[in-house]
Design a protein around this nucleic acid. Structure first.
Lengths: 218, 218
DNA sequence: AGATGAGTCAAACGTTTGTTTCAAACGATC
DNA sequence: GATCGTTTGAAACAAACGTTTGACTCATCT
């Protein structure tokens, strides 16, 4: 029993390769569309490796989703600094969200495809995913919006959070249709810089409108 | 050769049942997840009926998607009436969009699940779907927003359309995560009536903000 | 050296998949 | 009523699926 601090180096190697390959395949083809054979082929692992390391396909999917989103948590460097004005905090949040979500050229962009699939058809991974990865960012956004216009009630804050998130998320989930809708030329004009400006300005205006409505009829 | 004008009545019966059953199965389980056997069982048709009427599974999927969205076009009764003020037109559009998109209790709510799947992974049906069904509504929204604040440029109009659509769409695509995020109680408070108010007010504020920015630095 | 355990490998398991086959039943036309 | 094209029925097809097996390698420990 010499499991002192590190296991054998070669042990986790194929397991990690399987998790990575499984994440890509599941994100691209869905749970039913992806096959264990193709995943093992991509990971350069034997067919029986999935059964050995994870038991079955379902547990491989669950662990692949969790592994994909656990390594993304420490990407938010400077959180809620009180030294920066709230509108500027919101701009930072939106820019960061857009860059992480909408950028298809990023290496691991399939991470978010997995999340989108969990949205449409939630599996057992959805609960852990929401609590561990999404909730912290949601609460941060909620704090920023509360800083922009203090005094809003809970429902207004929730709805405003979804106003920000919905706008950002659309440029990921609606890409295929939106680009066909306006054509490639106009679609390319909606670059991340412009979208950051537009969504920030729109969201700030929405917050102001909600605060005004609140003060008019309390 | 007596293919005068109408085919045999009973002919299209099983074909229509197949299209309906296929739509539900594909929407619920995806293309790979749905099986021809389950579709035929649900449609009370023989297994060979799919091959006879559609050739193969892929063509069945395509025709099911198209059939699902063709019967939704004439749901927009009064379009762009000039007698109604533009902000009120926007409210009507948002309310209609929300009711049609977010309502899960509707009978054929799986129609939109098919569209969401086309968004994440577009198939051959995506082009026809965008041009025939989505583009008319998009142009209508664009006209409404142009009526709210005339003089906006193309890029601003596109982005503002997506601000409206993104907010509405989130309450369909993000339901599973958003409800887990805020809890069932607060989630139920975001009913269609409140959301119509919130999104309309937010969108109008966004349009005003875009128009102001345009007038400040032309 | 021998035994132990984890990890890998090729091969096969039984099941389910999409697709095909062919005979039977239907409905209109001659 | 016979005949034709059209539609349905039960059965079977090959292929691919997830999963399992048992032998094999190779460090590690007694």
């Amino acid at each position: 029993m010499s499991i002192a601090r590190d296991e054998v180096v070669n042990t986790d190697a194929t397991k990690d390769r399987l998790l990575d390959a499984a994440g890509e395949e599941f994100a691209a083809l869905g749970f039913e569309g992806a096959t264990i054979r193709s995943i093992c082929r991509r990971a350069e692992a034997n067919l029986a490796a999935v059964n050995y390391h994870f038991g079955d396909k379902e547990r491989l999917y669950y662990e692949a989703v969790m592994a994909a989103h656990q390594c993304e948590l420490p990407q938010e460097p400077s959180g809620l600094e009180e030294s920066v004005a709230a509108p500027e905090q919101l701009r930072h949040f939106i820019r960061h969200f857009l860059e992480q979500i909408v950028a298809v050229n990023r290496a691991k962009s399939w991470h978010h495809d997995l999340m989108l699939r969990e949205m449409i058809r939630p599996t057992a991974a959805c609960d852990s995913l929401t609590q561990d990865m999404i909730r912290p960012r949601f609460l941060m956004l909620r704090g920023i919006l509360d800083g922009v216009a203090p005094g809003l009630n809970e429902r207004q804050l929730d709805a405003l959070c979804f106003t920000v998130i919905g706008q950002c998320l659309f440029y990921r989930v609606g890409t295929s249709i939106a680009s066909r809708l306006v054509g490639a030329e106009r679609w390319s004009g909606l670059d991340p810089e412009y979208l950051t400006d537009h969504i920030t300005r729109s969201s700030l205006a929405a917050v102001s409108a909600a605060a005004q409505k609140d003060s008019v009829s309390p």
